[in-house]
Every structure is written in structure tokens, then in C-alpha cells.
Design a protein around this nucleic acid. Structure first.
Length: 769
DNA sequence: AGCAGCTTCGCGCAA
DNA sequence: CGAAGCTGCT
């Protein structure tokens, strides 16, 4: 016990040992937040205040949940598998599997990812003859998800004009279709659970009484539905309630786009009459200059709860800033710097390269690949999102729930088996006429198309029958074979990678079965009934018998259902070369919660970071600033920032200005690696080297670009494309094009806020910035 | 029916 | 730039 609380600072200790009441912990980046959370749980259990089964801990990512369980296991000799630690989505999935009847879902309901959801909406629009110009599928999806995130069903949404009424109508049609198919989207997992618990009193009371302590990580990222869900679970306003322990940092709220509401922190404080508010401001992660940069940057935001990080670590290295001529050269520079760090003894996994959007990784990946530098990309196209794996998953889904139309359409003619667009159209008409799934509509089809389709359903049923008594890995293997998928890719010229990915599914299944505590040989299809008595706890509340949705998963769902949930909810984040010492590439979003000795924040350009669409949104720039804050605070020892004069974006060269965030950082903590040309005309003073001259060896494409630009500058009175300039009236801008020569030389300049202007270079009074 | 090759479109982060 | 969707050929 002493051991447990050992080494905690006074604030951390206070947080860990708070009485069993609602509490809000404002935990700055690197302040030992996860440590406080896990130690709190361990302390509660060790002091006998709660049993492991009485704890509910909620996180946003699977990674965070896993880490919490691992740390708990290290602190106490308990079996953490039975504990309720997970993501909102994972926990809801477990609850809905257990109480599927009360939730009005089929036992084998399946989870739609956003891809599936979008394609379903497209189908829906087509089937109802709705103009997808007027109702872009993405917008319809946004409308639906947004309302679900607010806890609103179609019948509860208020529509003020014809357009909204139509959207509401589509929302209803969409939900009906999901129900018919037995599928739920991500938001539905939460909403359905919320509705289940709010309508079913015995069930609600059961869980409220069970969970004495509810702990929430990253509370600033909760959306309104998640907050309401927590309120319900914590029994707020009921005599059964437990204590809610929320840990969050308003400065790291970066998920507004998926409905997160920082206001939940203040709401929680007042609604739950929180007496215990503790700020953790001591940072154990970053050196001084890095922290100073983070603090000054974030001070530009308004409406903060107020918090300032401090460190005892000393100033450390300054933040290094680099201006690259192009995105290619930026990548080149990163590699040079990374090599230098590695030569000094840094490991590759302690070097992170962060970017604002996934598309930026391509150039960097290409450069790393050419340089033979091992790297690992997080996010991006995950294992279970790859086309071939999704195909295989679709076959498995059909085996478990043949009424999943998305799965049906994905593979009904893949590999090709003579079922074309025309047959599908007929089948869809039949399904609409009989108000049933595509699978169920097959018997209504006649003729050639009918027999081809019947062949397909026979295939599915055959495999299902054949594998009835087999364990999950065998089921997967046989499915890959019988579906013809494996053979299809084996025959394909460049299908080797895909075959490998498919074969990896068998090992993924093997690993899954053992990790989740299913018996090695447990039949994949077998419903939970057979094993229900083994794990599930049956309790009686108010005379109503309740099967508690307790771990292990085996007690509430079949191995196959569980595996499919796993594929949807985890998407196989780290399936790729784990354990290898590689550079870490990821978006700033996915870097949240992680830390590295060396961090590169790349592409710090206006339009990219902050992202251009953020300026149109209310509070968008503040969110981008928080995102930048998250990025900076990932670094322990060394932080790099870079931006490019030219960048390939959406297939064309763009000339961006450096990010406004540079103006919000403490000058004394920065070290510019490239000459800041503000101090004079570096073009005419031969002595001063420019950023361009200092370039390390660059790819030929870049040389060509540099040559082209230099050529342009000869006839353009010393100005060149990509250069930053200042104009008395228009402010700062970037030269994006130069036309003509000599006295007729004109430049097209992007002045950002003032727009793009064409100025006569012999007349305009421009200054170099 | 099925595929190659062409055009068009859209493009931010993600459980 | 890349994915999705369309056309027209076999």
C-alpha cells in the first residue's frame, strides 16, 4: 500500500485518495494522469472500498484501455480480465450483446464502420430516388451521426424547413434499414445502450448499484450522449448512485468534429456539485523550452479553465524550427536529423513524426522508404480496413448474420461469379417489395440470375454448415478457401501482399481466441447459451432475473460475433510490424496520450495547420491551437517544427505561408535552423546563405523545382516563387506565381486574409519577410 | 457479364 | 494525387 502511493506528488496523492465522491481532476499534459487513474483504482480496491467488479473505467481508445489494464495488473495481483475497463464503444457492445433482447437487437447484430455506413446511405438514397446532389451522402451521414451524438432519434429531431424534414425522413429510413439488417453504427452502440438503460429500470438499477466507482479518462472529449450515458450509469439523481471520477484537460480537447463538448467539464462540475477539484500542473515529461512553447501558445485561447504547466527539468534544448523549400525537402531534412539523433544513441521508436492530416504521410513515407529507414505508420489504412480483409470479414459476417446487406453486396460477386449489376438491381427490387434483406430475397428471384444468386447463398450456408463444430481459426481458414478469395488473389499478379494479409487473419483469429478467453477449441458459431452458465452472473433484482454482462466475453457472445466486433471496434491498429524499432509516423490526433524523446511537427503552414476549413468553423482555430498544444507536449527532450514553401496538395503545387502558430511561440525558446530573412535582403548579399543553399542532397524532382524557381527569379527583379513578402496594405503574403520579365514583371501573391492579388513588381512596394 | 481504361470528384482529424 | 464511377469493348 505504501508502495502504491509512493512517489506521488501532493496533488496526485490527494486525487488518488479522495473520498468516494464525485471529483474532477484537471490534468495537464504529462502530469501523470494515467498514473493517477490507475493508482486510484488500485487504492480503492486495496483499501477494500470497492471490489474489482464494482469499478467501471472508461477510455476513448483501445490503446488507453489496454495500458490501464496492464498497469493495474502490475500493481495488484488480480485478474484484470474480469474488470470493466474499456472504451465507450467496447463497453456498450458488451452490454448490448448481453441484453440484446431488451435492446431489440438480434443476438448476432453487427457493427458498421463509417465506410459501411456511408455506402448504406448511398444505397438508401438510390433506392428512394433521392438526388444525391441535393443530399450529399456525407452530409446525410453527418446529420444522422450528429443527432445520435445528441441523443436524438429521428422522431425527436425538430425540422424547420423542407430540407431538414427530408433529412429527418432519411434518418428514419436509415434506422429502419439498420434494424432490418441487424446492424448498428458506432453512434448507435451508445444511443441504444443509453435508451436500454433509461427505459429498463431494473437493469439500470442493477448497474447503478454495481458500479460504485466510475472513472473516466479524457473527459474533455465526451460528447453529450456520452455524458448523459455516464450520468445514467453513475445514477445521478437516484439513490443508487456511485461516484464519478473524471479526469480531463480542456486544453487537449480536439474532437469537436465528432461531437465532443468541452462544456461537459463545467456541466459536470455544477450538475454533480463537485466538491473535489484538483489541478495537476506539475509536468514530468518535457523540458523547459518545450513547455514554455506549449504554455505561451495555449495562452492565446480564450475560455480556458486555466492551468499552467511547470517542470523541474530545466530548459533543455531549444525548439528547432526549419523552413523547407518543398515537402520533399522537408522529408529529406527529417531523415537527416533523425539519422543524427540515432547516431547519438536515440532509438527509432523514440522519434515521432507528426502531421495534421494523413495525406501528408505519403511524401515522408516515400523518402523514408528510399532511405531504407524503418518506420511504422499509425492510423491510415488499418488492417481490418484493407479491401481484401474487408471482403473476408464480409463472408464471416454473412455466416453470422446473412441479412447484413452491406456485407452481401460487397462479396456477392467477388470473386466474380456471374452476378452483375442487373441481377443485383432486380434483387434489390425484390427485397424492397418483400421488405426483407437481399439474402432473404434471393428465393424470389427466377431465371439465370436467380440460380446464380442461389448458388451464392448455398455457398454461404454450406460453409456455415461445414464449420458448425469448428473453432474460429479453422472457420476463418475454410471461409478464405471456400469463398474463393484466397485463390483469386493467388492468381493475381500483384496479389502476394493481399494473400499474406488474408493468411494473417487466421493467426489474428488464433490470437484473439486465446486473448479473449474463449476455449481454444470452442465452436466459433455456438451461441453463448451453452457457455452462459460458465461466466455470466445471474442476479435477481426486483424479481426480475438479470444476466449480468460480465466478463469474459465468451459468456455473452460466440467467438465469431466477438471477433467481428473486434474487427469493427479495433480495426487492427497495431497489426503491422510491431516490436520492430521504427520511426513513428502518425497524425497529431492519434499521438494524443503518447510521448517521445524526439518529436517532429511537420507541415506547419497556413491552410494545413491550422487547417483551412477550421477558420470557417466556430472556435475552429482555437481547436487547431489545442491540437498544436497536444503536438508540442508530446515531446520529452527535443522538438522540431517545420514548414514548406511549396507543397503538393490535391494534385497541385501550393504555396503556403508559415503557420500563424509560430507567432505565438516564445522567441527565446526557438532556434531557427534556416536563416530568417527578415534581417535584410539575403538575395543580394552574397555572403548570407539562404535556406535553399543549405539543402542537403535532394531528389531530382526537387532539384528541377529549385531550378525552375531560380530561373524565374532571374528576370523577376530578384523575387521568386514561394518567397514570403509583406505589403503595406495587404499584409503578409507568399508569391505564388511570377509572369513576364523586367519592367512588365508581375507577381501573383497570396495575402491570405486579403486574398490573392496580382502586383506589378517594378511598382509595388514589397518587403521581404 | 466483366474488365480495362478513362473521367470525375473530392479532399480533416476517428472509435 | 488517388478512389470511385462510368463507358465502351470483348
Amino acid at each position: 500500500m505504501q508502495n502504491l502511493l509512493h512517489n506521488l506528488n501532493p496533488e496526485q496523492l490527494a486525487a488518488v485518495t479522495l473520498p468516494p465522491q464525485n471529483a474532477l481532476i484537471l490534468a495537464g499534459a504529462g502530469s501523470g494522469k494515467t498514473r493517477v487513474l490507475t493508482t486510484r483504482i488500485a487504492w480503492l480496491i486495496q483499501t477494500g472500498q470497492v471490489s474489482p467488479a464494482g469499478v467501471l473505467a472508461v477510455t476513448f481508445t483501445n490503446k488507453a484501455a489496454k495500458e490501464m489494464l496492464a498497469r493495474l495488473g502490475a500493481m495488484m495481483p488480480i485478474n484484470t480480465r474480469g474488470m470493466w475497463v474499456g472504451t465507450f464503444h467496447g463497453l456498450c457492445n458488451r452490454l448490448l450483446r448481453t441484453h440484446y433482447k431488451d435492446a431489440a437487437l438480434p443476438q448476432t447484430f453487427q457493427i458498421l464502420d463509417s465506410q459501411d455506413q456511408l455506402s448504406m446511405i448511398k444505397r438508401l438514397l438510390k433506392a428512394n430516388n433521392i438526388d444525391d446532389e441535393k443530399f450529399p451522402p456525407k452530409q446525410v451521414m453527418y446529420f444522422i451521426n450528429n443527432n445520435k451524438d445528441q441523443g436524438l432519434r429521428a422522431s425527436q429531431v425538430e425540422a424547420y424547413d423542407a430540407l431538414e424534414r427530408k433529412l429527418v425522413e432519411l434518418y428514419q429510413l436509415y434506422d429502419d434499414q439498420c434494424q432490418r439488417e441487424g446492424v448498428v453504427d458506432f453512434a448507435e452502440l451508445l444511443l441504444r445502450t443509453y435508451e436500454l438503460l433509461s427505459r429498463n429500470e431494473p437493469l439500470r438499477q442493477h448497474y447503478q448499484q454495481r458500479f460504485r466507482h466510475i472513472l473516466v479518462d479524457e473527459f474533455q472529449d465526451t460528447n453529450n450522449l456520452q455524458y448523459a450515458w455516464l450520468k445514467l450509469m453513475a445514477g445521478h439523481g437516484s439513490p443508487f448512485g456511485g461516484a464519478l471520477f473524471a479526469v480531463g484537460d480542456d486544453d487537449q480537447s480536439i474532437y469537436a468534429f465528432r461531437g465532443a463538448n468541452v462544456g461537459n467539464m463545467q456541466a459536470f462540475e455544477s450538475e454533480f456539485r463537485v466538491q473535489n477539484l484538483i489541478k495537476l500542473e506539475q509536468n514530468y515529461r518535457s523540458h523547459g523550452h518545450i513547455l514554455d512553447a506549449a504554455n505561451l501558445l495555449i495562452s492565446n485561447n480564450s475560455r480556458r479553465l486555466g492551468k499552467n504547466l511547470r517542470t523541474d527539468a530545466g530548459h533543455g534544448e531549444p525548439v528547432r524550427v526549419y523552413e523547407a523549400s518543398s515537402d520533399l525537402q522537408e522529408a529529406q531534412w527529417i531523415i537527416e536529423e533523425a539519422k543524427a539523433r540515432i547516431a547519438e544513441g536515440a532509438t527509432r521508436r523514440e522519434i515521432a513524426i507528426l502531421y495534421r492530416s494523413n495525406a501528408q504521410s505519403r511524401v515522408i513515407e516515400h523518402a523514408l522508404f528510399s532511405a531504407g529507414m524503418p518506420y511504422h505508420v499509425y492510423g491510415g489504412l488499418r488492417y481490418f480496413q484493407r479491401a481484401e480483409v474487408k471482403h473476408a470479414i464480409a463472408y464471416l459476417q454473412l455466416m453470422d448474420n446473412p441479412h447484413n446487406d452491406s456485407a452481401f453486396l460487397r462479396v456477392v460477386n467477388f470473386p466474380a461469379r456471374g452476378i452483375g449489376a442487373r441481377s443485383i438491381e432486380q434483387l434489390q427490387n425484390a427485397a424492397a417489395a418483400y421488405n426483407c434483406s437481399l439474402y432473404a430475397a434471393v428465393p424470389y428471384m427466377v431465371g439465370k440470375a436467380g440460380s446464380a444468386l442461389a448458388g451464392f447463398t448455398k455457398l454461404i450456408e454450406g460453409v456455415r454448415f461445414e464449420t458448425q463444430q469448428l473453432a474460429l481459426p479453422e472457420l476463418v481458414r475454410i471461409t478464405l478457401d471456400s469463398s474463393g478469395l484466397l485463390q483469386h488473389y493467388q492468381n493475381e499478379k500483384e496479389g502476394a501482399d493481399r494473400v499474406e494479409n488474408l493468411e494473417q487473419m487466421v493467426s489474428a483469429a488464433t490470437q484473439f481466441v486465446s486473448e479473449e478467453g474463449f476455449g481454444q477449441g470452442a465452436p466459433a458459431h455456438l451461441g453463448p447459451q451453452a457457455s452462459a452458465t460458465a461466466g455470466a452472473q445471474v442476479v435477481v433484482a426486483d424479481g426480475v432475473e438479470i444476466i449480468d454482462a460480465d466478463a469474459p466475453l465468451a459468456s455473452v457472445m460466440s467467438p465469431l460475433s466477438a471477433f467481428l466486433s473486434h474487427a469493427s471496434l479495433e480495426a487492427g491498429d497495431n497489426q503491422a510490424q510491431e516490436g520492430q524499432d521504427a520511426l513513428q509516423l502518425m497524425t497529431v490526433h492519434s499521438a494524443k496520450g503518447l510521448e517521445f524523446d524526439n518529436v517532429f511537427i511537420t507541415g506547419l503552414e497556413e491552410g494545413l495547420f491550422p487547417h483551412e476549413s477550421s477558420s470557417k468553423e466556430d472556435g475552429g482555430v482555437e481547436e487547431e491551437r489545442r491540437l498544436m498544444y497536444v503536438a508540442i507536449t508530446r515531446a520529452r527532450k527535443r522538438l522540431y517544427m517545420s514548414f514548406c514553401q511549396t507543397r503538393m496538395l490535391h494534385g497541385q503545387t501550393r504555396y503556403n505561408m508559415k503557420s500563424r502558430f509560430f507567432d505565438e511561440l516564445p522567441e527565446e525558446s526557438l532556434k531557427w535552423l534556416t536563416a530568417r530573412v527578415q534581417q535584410g535582403n539575403w538575395f543580394s548579399t552574397g555572403s548570407r546563405k539562404s535556406a535553399w543553399d543549405e539543402m542537403p542532397s535532394v531528389p531530382s524532382a526537387d532539384n528541377r523545382l529549385a531550378a525552375r524557381i531560380n530561373q524565374a527569379s532571374g528576370a523577376s527583379l530578384g523575387w521568386r516563387i514561394g518567397e514570403s513578402v509583406a505589403h503595406a496594405k495587404f499584409g503578409e503574403g507568399v508569391i505564388i506565381n511570377i509572369e513576364g520579365s523586367g519592367a512588365n514583371c508581375r507577381a501573383q501573391i497570396n495575402f491570405g486574409k486579403s486574398g490573392i492579388k496580382v502586383l506589378d513588381l517594378s511598382v509595388a512596394k514589397l518587403e521581404r519577410v
